[in-house]
């Protein structure tokens, strides 16, 4: 499978990474190079093989339902590039 420029643009849009037209060609070449190389996996017979999920060492541990965290607004907002009072902000979203 080989990526065309439209697909590269679509992926960039999904990933919310701005790309210039000038990047497009190089990026397309690099991604296609990597994709071409990982094509080798197609020769592996994976019939009946389960995908790896988790580490196989344990099942998920569950914690008790107790409030142990939160109430730390200063910490939560400490690195915000543009906090407004107790809030984070984003450019106005029109719904």
């Amino acid at each position: 499978m080989s990526l065309d420029p439209a697909t590269v643009r679509r992926i960039a849009r999904l990933a919310r990474i701005g790309i210039d037209e000038s990047d497009l060609h190089a990026l397309q070449g690099e991604l296609n190079g990597i994709l071409g190389w990982i094509e080798q996996l197609n020769e592996v017979d994976i019939d009946g093989v389960e995908p790896m999920v988790g580490t196989g060492h344990a099942a998920l541990r569950m914690r008790d339902d107790v409030v142990t965290d939160g109430d730390a607004r200063d910490a939560v907002l400490s690195n915000a590039p543009d906090a407004a009072g107790p809030f984070y902000t984003v450019p106005k979203v029109v719904e």
Partner: peptide
């Protein structure tokens, strides 16, 4: 580049061919 690659291999229509296959090979 890696974010783009990762976005692509998880995207609709390619998940099985790339990500799922890779997790099987990983097993």
């Amino acid at each position: 580049r890696r974010i783009m690659m990762g976005t692509y291999v998880l995207s609709a229509g390619y998940y099985d061919a790339y990500y799922l296959r890779a997790q099987k090979v990983r097993n």
